[in-house]
Each structure stands twice: as structure tokens, then as C-alpha cells.
Design a protein around this nucleic acid. Structure first.
Lengths: 212, 212, 212, 212
DNA sequence: ACTTAATCGAGACGGTACGTCCAGTCTTTCG
DNA sequence: CGAAAGACTGGACGTACCGTCTCGATTAAGT
């Protein structure tokens, strides 16, 4: 799949080859790429979103600014790459065949991710930026959110397949009601999101659909 | 009554008096204050959050930069004042004595506010910035969100008073489940929030509590 | 003689009367005037010419800016007033009836004034500013330099009157040759001006005119 | 050879190389440097010392402010560079082997330079600033005045070598007496400095040392 | 005594320039 | 050809003073 110059690039052989040189005719420097992503991540955690600058990244990664501009176009582009590299597999819901358990574990995991992890910090920063930049919001959805929402729906889809839930379930609206309150607390109210709260959400979902 | 530098000042007599002079020991220029708030608002709607700069506000308000810095410390401070001035009373839920109707109207109003109004544009921009600036997040809560959440709870509180809902209802968690999905669509997924969706939320709330 | 609003005002009765009030229809506040002049002087000595600002003078004199602008138009105007108040009588050459002695004492006094006194510091600062502002140069000459040059000529004039020097002596050119080298060292080279040097100037003057 | 940030750079090959690029690792833009110096010069002559601002220079040179701050620290620093570039060789006294003639020509040249030339205007402005800034006074001496005084002494040194003047002549003090009166008229009194006056100075010098 | 008028401290106002930071572009040299 | 280096234009930052203004209080002179 082609994702343009800002993509995290291919994998395997190409990356392995790139790893062996620093700036020559054989493609981009994997070393520089990693240094940039790590520097961006580090700066965000250390100094916050505003403290992340292209110049700061360049100097703290020991990389020329031009090298950054060659592969990325904005600092959020970099942060998104950094985020994707770290966090892609983190939020896949479990599948133990038990809706209650899987849903509870997933929502709890989501809450922990958003409020406790470095990756979550990067992600909420990117969500914040998305409010200021509709184009970036689109990129964020295309490169992460759409996929994540698909993963969020998995427990419901599985349950539908198992016959635990009706086939005509509006999973989009249901997921909104499951994760929406969590995002609301994280992004809007700042209230803590404890296990009791995520379990309440699950419970209400189950009662709504007379499961059990 | 508020006294901080960013306060929107009192109203009535005090403001009328201030309107008569442009800069002396007895108060700031109301003319300059209004021009700044309107310029900030206008720039945000016209050019987006990034396009709002103190210099831009100053020049488009016909005001000296120093005058801005005398009364506000950041552009978000200005935008918050502008937002509060316009939108404070906009989101008060109706009280017709009918929980279903009041709740439905309020959530629909909230969705319209967030997705269709200029004030909503300012507000989501401020929410976005709050993700990058914890201190500002605190200010935003203290100056707007806490009060707004109190208003969001009103329909439930009223119903509790009327005996339609149990007295021990966890209104905070309930409101999270009512408005959370709306904020989620607005801030995260970008999905439209139509009346059917807000009504679904109300419906689920009512079913949850076996009202009717 | 009328010197305009920036003049150091009259003396005697008028000043005494003014001293008794602080701001009323008839006359300025002598207290404010003194405080301004002293503040300006103090700031110059403490922080240098660039460190003297109207705002700095106002705040360190405990005076309103407007009060300053009511009576002076520029900071150099204030400094000139301050200088004139302190230093008017300081540089009058002695008249012992002995040209050699009087001239030697006067030139030495001039050197001390320029290099050692606070008034000299103010004066050289004003001379510096005069290089940047021809209008001020004119004022400085009218209010001080012309008179001072007249005083500088006194020893020669006296000697001419006594018959020690020819009546057709070009005293202007002679004074240039006597004080010019001193100013040159002070303003241009920064070399010290010791008694040996001023005595050399006197000696050469005397030899030039075969006195003794 | 000079290496400081304010240096006028070398000449010849090095400058030729620099002229070919506009900003890269191997040197500054000669185009920008020249434009800044010329703009500063022009603004001084056109609007006076106070009218010279870094922003004014930048905009009239078509150069970014940062480029100026990269290479100079103050406007006087720029003016000094501009002055040195134009005027270094201008004030070398002639050497015809005739003391009277050489001295007369040189002093006359100095007077013309100070009172008539654009370079002289810049120079007196710098001398004025030197009265307000001892550090700059030091720089001005190190970068120009010391060398100029050496040049001013040349006619005397040559005459000493030729045996026309005694070997133990205090050339420093003599030069003070030759040029001091000229500077005095230019910087202090504002009197014109005509050829008669400079010739008088020469004449008095010669008589002082019984030459001829 | 009462009004009038000029002064005072205070401080907000519209501006200009300061010196700094960062954005994004460009040019060169090296490997 | 990519990378490091770093100079370039440009725009916004937040600060310091400028010179102007308006206010409320104070005080003397003229009525």
C-alpha cells in the first residue's frame, strides 16, 4: 500500500539494507529516521506539544533539518509516525470468547492507554492538534483511527458472529456509547477513568441488549 | 465576582462607565476590549486556530500589542474570553417538566452548538489546545466546563426532584454517558451527530432507568 | 531673558513661592522639578546615557510622565537642565593677574571637570548626543558652550587688557589650540590628561607669543 | 588577520568564493553583507543616527533581521563596518618629503573629511555614540582610531627620520595639538575649519620647533 | 465661601523597535 | 544522491519606551 513519503516505509529487506549506511545513494538512513522519531517522542513527553519543534528535533536527533523536511512535512506528521511505530498493536482487544470479559478488558486497556502511557500522551496531543487542523484530522483517521475503531468493534462483531448479539446491531453507535464516555473524561472533563467506570459502561451495554 | 486580568468584567453600570474613556487609572478601554475579542473570534473562524496570532488580533482590532498583553497573556486566554462572552447562556437545557423532551432537546442543542455554531468552533479549538496545555485545561474547566456540566446535569436533577429518577443516581456518570458519545463523534471520529443519534442516547438512558 | 518652558526658571522669590505647593493653577511644583533633575542625573551616572529613559526618570523621581512632558521635551533637555543647575559656576577661570598661573589652573580644572566629575560625565554625554542631533547641538551651544567659551577666553582677554598679549590676538583660535587638545584626548583618544600635558599646552602658548 | 563576527572579512580569493553562494556551510552571503552596510550608510546620511534602526536597515537592504543579528550585534557595529570599508585609505597623509606641505595637506584633508564627506558624517556619529558607550569607544579605537593616529603621526615620523625634527619629539602630544583643535571645532564648537586655520596650526607647530 | 483653572500622580492607549525563536528553503561538501 | 551543516528570508513572539490621553485630587486666585 502506498502511503506517500511520510509513511513508515516498507519492512524487511529494504529496511535491513538501509540500516547499513548513513546517507548515500541507496535510500534513506534508517538511523536518521529512528533518531527523529525518538527525538520527537522524547521532546513531547519532556516539554509538551508546544516544546516540540523541527529545529529541536533536528538538533536533539543529530540530524539536519533538511533531512527532516525531506521525509516529513510537519511536526505532527513526525509524531504520528512515532506514535504508529510504537502503538499499533497495543490496543487490540482480546478474544476469549466471552463478551463481558473481552469488552471490560478492552475498555480498561483503552483507559490505561489514554491516561497512563507515553503513547497515549502523544495520541491525545495529536487529537488536540486535529481540532486545529481538519486536514490532519483526516490523516489521523486514515492512518490510525479508522483502523482502531474497527478493532474496537471486534468484540461486538465476534459476539454477533457467535449469536450473542443481534445481527442488525448498530455497532458504530454502540462503540460510540462504549468509548465515548471514556474519551469524554480524558479529553474534556479530566476526570479519572477507573475500572469501575469502564465496567459500568460494559454493564449498561449488556443490560441494553438483555445479554445475561 | 471575578477580578483576574482575564475576567470579562462586570456588566451594567460599571461597563457603561468604562465606555466613556479610553485609558486612565479608572479602568480599561471597553472599546479596545470588545475589538480584541471580536477580532480574535473573527480570525479563528476565518483562518483557523493557527491563523490566530496576537499580532493579527492587534492589527485587525486596531489596538496596540501592549494593550493586549496588559489584559491577556495568551491567545487562548483571549479566545476563552470571547467564547464566554458570546456563549455562556446558550447551552442551558430547557425545563418543561418532561425529562424525555428536555434531555432530547438539550443533547440536540449541544450537538448543534458543537458542530454548527461559531462559538462551537471556538470551543472545540480551545478543547484542542487544552490537550497541549494542562494549565489551560484547568482554566477552561474552572471558567466554563464545570459550570456547563452542572447545566448538563440539570434535567436529571430536576427529574430526581420530581421523583422520576432515583435519588441516588450517579448523575456525573450518567451525563458522561449522555454527552460523551456526542463529544466523541465531534472530537474523535468526525461522524455527524444527528437527532436520531442524540435521541438514541436519551432512549438508552431512559430504558436504563426503566422510566416510562 | 526668555528661554522658553525648558529654562531652569528664575530664581529667588518665584522659586521660593513655588516650593510651597504641589500642583495648582499658578506655577509648577519645584519638588517635582528637582526630583526629575536629580533622577536624571542619578540614572545617567548609574546606568549611562542609554539607561536614562523618560519612564525611568518618572518612576525613580516619583513623578508622572505627563509632568515631565509638561516641562521638558526630551531626556537630553532634562539632562541639560540638570547639568546647568549643577555646573554653571564650576568652570570660571581664576584671575590672579598672572597669565601663566591662571591659564594653567584653568586648563587643569577643565581636564578634571571633563574626566573626573559627575557633571563632566553628563556633559560629555550631552556632547555625544549633540553629534546625533544638530538641533540639540545648537541648544547646547546657546545654553552653555557659548558662555563657557567666553569664560575660557577670560585669561587671554585679561592679559590683553594688561598688555601682556597683543591686542589683535585671535583669542578664538588660541582657545581652540588650548582646549582643543584636551577635548581631543577626552572625546577621541581616551588618553589621560595630566597636569604635565595641560602645562605643556600653556607653555607652547606662551612661547608662541614670546611671553616671558 | 581579523576573525571576529564584525570583521570586514578578508579580500581577494576568499571574498570571490563567498560571492558565489547565498547561505551555506561555507560562509556568509556577500550580497547580504554589502546590502546591509550600504543600507546603514544610506539611512545614516538620510535620516541621521537616530533614524538608523536594525529593522530599517533590514527592510531597506532586503535582508532578514536575523541575518543582521547573525553577523553584527548593534547598529553601531554595522556603521563601523560600513565606515571602515569605505574610508580606511582615505586619510593617509601624503609624503612629498616636505613637512610643511605634507602636514598642511593632511590637516586640511582631515577637516574636509570630518565636515564634508559622508564617511565623516558616519565617523562623527560613531564618535558621538562612543561617548555613551565605553565598550564601543574601545572598539572604535582598536578598529580605527589607533591606526588613524599612527597615520596622523607619519609626517612627523618621516621628518624625524629625515632629521628635520628632533628624535626625541613627543609625537603623541604634538599630534594632539595639531588635530585636537580641528576635532574641537567639529565636535564641540561647530565652527568652520578652513584652510587658514589648519595652516595656522601647522605654522605654530613649525615655529614651536624652529623649523625653517 | 465658591467657583475656576492649572498642576499633580497614576496609568491606559496606539505605536515603533527591540532582540529571539522557529519555519521552511537553499546551497555546498562529503561519503 | 542522501545526509550534515548552516546561512537565508520571513513572521510572530513578548518587552521596553515613546509621546498622548484622561481621570480624580489638590490648591491658589479671582469672584
Amino acid at each position: 500500500m502506498e502511503r506517500g513519503r511520510t509513511a513508515t516505509e516498507g519492512s524487511g529487506a529494504e529496511r535491513t539494507a538501509a540500516r547499513q549506511h548513513h546517507g548515500n545513494r541507496h535510500g534513506r538512513s534508517e538511523r536518521a529516521r529512528q533518531a527523529v522519531l525518538e527525538a520527537a517522542d522524547g521532546l513531547l513527553v519532556e516539554k509538551g506539544f508546544t516544546g516540540v519543534t523541527i529545529e529541536g528535533i533536528a538538533s536533539s536527533a543529530g540530524v539536519a533539518k533538511q533531512t527532516i523536511y525531506r521525509w516529513w512535512s510537519t511536526k505532527t506528521d513526525i509524531l504520528l509516525d512515532a506514535f504508529l511505530q510504537d502503538a499499533t498493536e497495543a490496543l487490540t482487544p482480546p478474544d476469549h470468547g466471552d463478551l463481558t470479559e473481552d469488552l471490560g478488558a478492552h475498555l480498561h486497556q483503552l483507559a490505561l492507554f489514554l491516561t497512563r502511557s507515553d503513547a497515549g500522551t502523544v495520541f491525545t496531543a495529536l487529537l488536540g492538534h486535529a481540532q486545529h487542523d481538519p486536514a490532519f484530522a483526516g490523516v489521523l483517521r486514515a492512518r490510525y483511527l479508522d483502523e482502531q475503531r474497527r478493532r474496537d468493534r471486534l468484540p461486538l462483531d465476534n459476539a454477533v458472529r457467535r449469536g450473542e448479539l443481534p445481527a442488525d446491531l448498530d455497532t458504530v453507535a454502540e462503540v460510540d456509547q462504549l468509548v465515548g464516555p471514556i474519551y469524554h473524561r480524558v479529553l474534556v472533563t479530566g476526570d479519572p477513568v477507573d475500572r469501575a467506570f469502564t465496567d459500568l459502561l460494559v454493564d449498561n451495554f449488556l443490560r441494553r441488549h438483555r445479554v445475561r
